[in-house]
Design a protein around this nucleic acid. Structure first.
Lengths: 338, 338
DNA sequence: CTGAAAGCGCTTACAG
DNA sequence: CTGAAAGCGCTTACAG
């Protein structure tokens, strides 16, 4: 089934069929013919060949999502938000890499061949963005303080982290451990830095901040905590702040395995507020990072960039268009710090 | 950057460039020219335009994954398995729908326009497969007892469900509740049917089997349990078997909210064995359904079908190629039924 | 072994 | 408002 067949069926030209299907009918196609094309399309069940369309236009309707770590269930809700906003016009192509590994240059190349309408990239490194180049519109997610020439949608975690530190201080904690992600991206650096600063403001210290890190996986986090705990305990650590909820789950598991009570022997907190954090033993105190709004905001910004050209996005954006406000993170206090 | 530019750079024709890039050089391109093309491709950073390639071949390298419920974190590992097996040759396109909703005919249409290399469809209905038609190679995941003309990768849950029933009977349970998924697909019907049958063999009954169901979401499951519990309790239910771990988490939350102790007042079990089930309060007894192997097996089978033509897959498969053995589910007993 | 050329199915100036 | 035609960048018989 091709546009030529539709045209023949409707008694019109392929040009007219194409104009109707692309909504470029204003002053170019008569109402009667618009209707005729629509009827033929419906009757024949015609669908535009995306490859041919992309070839002719120089752009496809594919949006590439580069996520370093789909195993982090946080992405489930981000993706839902993206799909909601993208709607039927664009198709999401997934680039998943190993846990926490940044995609390589050759990964990037493959996607360029798709002539994507745009890229959505979670927590990229500067190097990765350099490789991606100016190929297509781009919005980055959760990449705070990245180069200013790229549109970004971020979280404002400062108040929530302050609240977390105050919360822990009020519970009598004086020395904290920090279980970091192994991914070396700015969002994780910021979480640690802001926590460290907030801890100091609240009369607490963070013990050996670089000691413990793991990929975003429960078992790996449990092992990392197990390795760090002897030193932390010697240092007087009574609370462990984790870079993600998944890390915190690992700590919960390791703590139980070694007979530590939470929060009695050690308090535990995370970042994300995955749904599971309501049912862990004990329920997890965490900084909520709403995933779906992040996905929606990023997708909305990308579509604006695709439709509006350069000045709708971050690329050489004039002063007329400011960045969207960051999404506000909030502290959710539960039993793991009770 | 086009094949023509590569050809010019290498002093050869675009035909030769294409043959080299598609590995069709046997007896068609001299070793020296193969090398020359490779060098030019590398030097110029050339990537084949996928749209043009798909147009010329009539097929793209896109594999469409239709998953009714990406919010189920079970899919994270399935997707990882798929990506592992698909490798760099194919790109995964995501079709996500609302929780538990089957994709519509118009969703299907859109994908046909991509001229996909194949489809991977999780737990489809017969109606959906009819709409999909014979468009491209197809493998379905977790769709037991579906029409036999389609290649499927399934779980063998029978022994695990028997073990689950025996486990519950040995703990003294006599009446079970069943919290079902709202998705009306065969895999969920089977879970309930097999559990019901196994319960009877072990001297137990399942109370009001159709009473309780929800989408695969913690809060919805908690509400469904809350609604069903009064009747179940009156019926003497002491254990609730859930269609997924996520449903079980909802029961755990609802139970805590209403002051029920688990497993003291009510035992709870799930299906999936998500990593979180190790850290819930209490840890969850569940039937483990390994997601990554499911994704890998399905992708492997799809690639075989794409490469081998009709007789490598389920389409009109001769007796020479049997279906792969089902992936075996196993019972994981934990504290929620202790 | 090599290259000229047809053809894949669109989109978009362009002429009318 | 309408249609003929060029052109997008590949792949693949085909002739040599």
């Amino acid at each position: 089934m091709t546009a030529a067949q539709v045209a023949a069926h409707a008694g019109l030209s392929v040009a007219t069929v194409s104009l109707v299907l692309n909504g470029k009918t204003d002053g170019r196609v008569s109402p009667a013919n618009i209707e005729r094309v629509r009827a033929s399309v419906a009757e024949l069940g015609y669908v535009v060949d995306q490859g041919a369309s992309a070839l002719a236009r120089g752009r496809s309707d594919l949006v590439v999502l580069v996520a370093p770590d789909l195993s982090n269930p946080f992405f489930g809700s981000v993706i839902q938000g993206i799909e909601q906003e993208l709607g039927p016009r664009f198709q999401l192509v997934l680039s998943v890499t190993e846990s926490g590994v940044q995609p390589s240059a050759s990964d990037v190349r493959r996607f360029a061949g798709l002539r994507p309408a745009g890229y959505l990239v979670d927590a990229p490194s500067d190097a990765f963005l350099d490789e991606l180049g100016d190929d297509a519109p781009l919005v980055v997610l959760d990449a705070p303080e990245l180069r200013t020439d790229v549109a970004a949608v971020n979280y404002d975690m400062r108040d929530a982290i302050d609240a977390l530190a105050a919360h822990l201080a009020s519970r009598g904690h004086r020395t904290l451990g920090y279980l970091d992600s192994i991914t070396d991206t700015r969002t994780f650096q910021l979480r640690r830095e802001q926590l460290t600063a907030a801890a100091e403001r609240n009369g607490m210290t963070v013990s050996a901040p670089d000691a413990a890190r793991s990929i975003i996986e429960l078992g790996a986090a449990a092992a990392a905590f197990g390795a760090a705990w002897p030193e932390w305990r010697a240092d007087g650590v009574t609370a462990v702040v984790c870079a993600t909820d998944t890390h915190a789950y690992g700590v919960l598991e390791a703590a139980r395995a070694s007979g530590l009570s939470v929060p009695g022997d050690v308090a535990v907190t995370g970042f994300d507020d995955l749904p599971y954090s309501r049912v862990t033993a004990p329920p997890l105190t965490t900084v909520r990072l709403p995933g779906e709004p992040l996905g929606r905001a990023a997708a909305r910004r990308l579509v604006a960039q695709i439709d509006g050209g350069a000045d709708a996005g971050g690329h050489a954006a004039g002063p007329t268009v400011g960045p969207p406000p960051d999404l506000v993170a909030t502290l959710i206090a539960r039993g793991s710090t009770a």
